[in-house]
Design a protein around this nucleic acid. Structure first.
Ligand SMILES: [Zn+2]
Ligand SMILES: [Zn+2]
Ligand SMILES: [Zn+2]
Ligand SMILES: [Zn+2]
Lengths: 135, 135
DNA sequence: CTTGACTCTATAGTAACTATAGAGTTTAAA
DNA sequence: TTTAAACTCTATAGTTACTATAGAGTCAAG
C-alpha cells in the first residue's frame, strides 16, 4: 500500500509518517518505480504501536528504545519496566504541579470582579505589587 | 543598570531578557555610548510582572495582552477576567487528561513483573496486540 | 596596555509535529 | 490521447519559549 492508505488505516497524517521514518521509528521501505513508498501489514502494526505509545505520552526517543527492545525477545524486562516507572513518576509530578497552579489561579481570580476597571483590577494589582512594592 | 544587573535582580537569564525585548514584552531601552542596554527600576518591575505571569503558565502572547491592558487603566476588567477563566479551564482539562493517563499507565505497568523476558513482557504485549490482532 | 568580565548581534538547536512550495507520478474521465 | 484530479516526492520554514553558541566589540582594573 502507499503512504496515503497507511495514513488512513492508522489515522495518522502523511507528513507524520514521513517524519517518523526520518526519526527512525519506521524503517525505510521499498519504493515503487515512481519512487513512492510501499508499506505492508507489519508497517501498519508498527505505526499503531507507535500511536499507542504516543497516547501514553511516551517520547519518540522512548518509543525508539521500546522498538529496539522488541527486537531482542530474549532480553530481560527491566528496561521496559523502569521506563514505565519513570514515566509514571513524571506524570505524577506534573499533575501535582498543575493542581498547585490551579489553586494559585483560582485565588488570583477571586481577587477581581467584572465591574471593575483595569485600574482597580485585583488580578493585575496582585501581579504587580506582590512582594516588591509597599514593603 | 546594564543587562547583567537586571538579570541578577530578577533571576532571569540575559538571553531571556533580550528575547523578551525582541518579543515586545519589554520595550527597547536607552543604549549607552558603547551600545549597551540601560534599564531603570520600571524595567525591573515589568520583568518581575512577566515572571509572575510565567509562573502561572500564561503564554507570552497572553502576557503581552495583559501589559497592553495595563496601559489603559480606564478600560473594563472583562478581558483580564476572561483570560483567567479560560486559562483555569485549560489547566483543569489538562489535569483531567493526565489523571486518566496516569491510570492507563498504572494498569499497563501491572501487566508485567521484573523476572520476565521481553518476549513475555506484558507491557509490550498489551501495546502490540491491543485491538488489531487475534480478531 | 593587556587581561578579564561584560555586552553586542546573528544564528542554530530543542520536541513533535504541521504547512507550505514546486516538482513528478498515477489514475480516470473526456 | 490528452488532460485533469489526486496523489506522492523532497526540501524548507514555522510553531513555543527559551538556551547555547560564535565572533566581535566595550569597559574597568592592574
Ligand atoms: Zn517518559
Ligand atoms: Zn480585574
Ligand atoms: Zn492561557
Ligand atoms: Zn515487561
Amino acid at each position: 500500500m502507499k503512504i496515503g492508505e497507511l495514513a488512513k488505516k492508522t489515522d495518522c497524517s502523511v507528513q507524520t509518517i514521513r517524519y517518523y521514518e526520518k526519526e527512525q521509528l519506521l524503517c525505510t521501505t521499498q519504493r515503487s518505480d515512481g519512487n513512492f513508498r510501499l508499506y505492508d501489514e507489519a508497517a501498519v502494526e508498527q505505526l499503531l504501536f507507535i500511536k499507542l505509545c504516543r497516547n501514553l505520552d511516551l517520547s519518540l526517543s522512548e518509543i525508539r528504545q521500546l522498538l529496539t527492545l522488541k527486537r531482542s525477545p530474549g532480553a530481560q524486562c527491566d528496561q521496559v519496566n523502569r521506563m514505565m516507572d519513570t514515566h509514571i513518576q513524571q506524570v505524577e509530578t506534573r499533575i501535582q504541579e498543575l493542581v498547585q497552579l490551579r489553586e494559585h489561579l483560582k485565588v488570583l481570580r477571586r481577587s477581581c470582579s467584572s465591574e471593575r476597571t483595569i485600574e482597580q483590577c485585583g488580578i493585575l494589582q496582585t501581579l504587580t505589587t506582590n512582594q516588591h512594592q509597599k514593603r
